[in-house]
Amino acid sequence: MWNNVRQLNLAANALYALALAALVASGGIWLAQRPSFALSAILIGGDTDHINTPTVRASVIGHLKGNFFTVDLDAARQAFEQMPWVRRASVRRVWPNALAVTLEEYKPLGTWGSDQLVSADGELFTANQGELDNELPAFDGPPGTAKEVVARYFEFKQWLAPIGATPEEVTLSPRYAWTVKLSNGTEIEYGRERNASTLEERSRRLTAAWKAVTARWGNDIEYADLRYPNGFAIRAAGMRFIGDASSAAQPKK
C-alpha cells in the first residue's frame, strides 16, 4: 500500500473529508448553542378566542426543550393541543429564535354531562364553561354516543320546528331511550327507537296535534309521552289525556 501512490491519495482524501466533516459538525454544534438561537418568542395565530398569554405560559412553555435548531416540533404541537379549547395545532420555526403556532379551537355546540363540552361534530372536550358567551343546549348519553346524540339534536330541531320551540336538552339514557326538553318548557319522552323512522314519526304525530292540544289546554304543556303505539299522553296544568293526530283533545279515561 505504501508503494501505491493511488491508494495513498485515496486514503489522504478520505482523512481530509473526515476532518472537514468533523470541523463542520463542531462548528454547527457551536453555532447552534449560541444564545442568539435560544427560543425567545412564540407567535400565535388562528383561533384564539379562548387562548391568552397566561394559558400558554402555564400549559406550554415548560414543555419546550432546546433552541431554534433542537426543539422537537412534534412535542411542541402536542403541548399546544393539550391546552383547553385547542382542537388542533401546527408549529413551525421562524428564524432565528421563534416558533409560529396556528391554532384551531373547538366550536362548542353544547354541554355534555356534568363537566364536558361537545362540538357540532360530536367531539367531546374539557374547558372552563364559565368562558362560554351564551347558554348552550345540554346533552348526555352513554359513553361513545356523543356523535349520535348531536346528530339527533339537529333532527329533533327540524322535526319539532312546527311547535315553535327548540331543544334545550337531549338525553339518551343507559337503556337508549330518548328524552328531549324544549325551550317552551315541555319535556318529551320518546322512548327507544323501534326502527329508523320511530323518532320522526312520533315527532310528526305530536306536531300535527299541537295546535288542537294548545287550543284546548293552553300553551303550558309540561310533558308529552310519545311512547304509545297510536297516540301520546300529555300533562298540562295538572291534567292528563291521550290524543292522536285526529283526536288530540280526547280526555284519557
Rank of each mutant, 00 (worst) to 15 (best):
N134C: 02
R87H: 08
R240C: 03
V180W: 10
F68K: 06
P108E: 07
R194M: 05
E201N: 12
A75C: 01
Q7I: 06
E169M: 03
Q250A: 09
L124P: 01
F69M: 12
L226S: 10
D115C: 01
L20F: 08
E131S: 12
K253L: 09
A161C: 06
Y106W: 09
T214C: 08
A212V: 00
T171D: 14
A58D: 15
N3Q: 13
H63G: 03
P229F: 01
F232M: 14
L132E: 02
E131P: 02
T166G: 14
T166S: 15
T53I: 14
L73F: 01
E189L: 14
A58G: 09
R205G: 13
D121F: 04
A89E: 05
I42E: 04
A151Q: 14
V150H: 08
T186A: 11
G238C: 01
T186R: 09
I163T: 11
F154W: 12
T186W: 08
V86M: 02
L10G: 06
G62W: 04
N67R: 00
E187G: 12
G66Y: 06
D220K: 15
E81H: 01
P137V: 03
K147D: 12
G122Y: 03
T207G: 10
V118W: 01
G62M: 01
D72G: 08
L8P: 01
E168A: 11
E105W: 05
E200K: 14
F156E: 10
G130A: 11
A12S: 09
E168W: 03
F80R: 05
S114E: 05
W30E: 07
R77F: 04
G66Q: 03
E135Y: 02
E222F: 00
G218Q: 11
A32R: 03
V86L: 00
L172Q: 05
E155D: 14
R192T: 09
K253A: 13
S59R: 10
P35W: 06
W217T: 03
D225K: 09
T145P: 08
E222D: 11
F80H: 06
L43V: 10
L20W: 05
E201L: 13
Y153G: 07
F154H: 15
N128Y: 02
Q129W: 06
P251Q: 05
T111I: 01
P251E: 11
W159T: 09
N134G: 03
F69Y: 14
N230P: 03
R34H: 13
K181P: 05
Q250F: 06
I188Y: 13
W30I: 00
E131F: 07
V91H: 07
T171F: 11
T102D: 15
K253Y: 07
R92Y: 06
F69S: 12
S183R: 07
S119V: 00
L99A: 05
N195H: 10
E131I: 00
E193D: 14
L20N: 00
Q33M: 08
E105C: 08
N3W: 10
N128A: 10
D47Q: 07
A100F: 01
L99N: 09
W2G: 14
Y153E: 05
N219V: 04
Q33Y: 01
T53W: 00
W178K: 07
P137F: 05
P142C: 04
P108N: 13
N13T: 09
V60C: 07
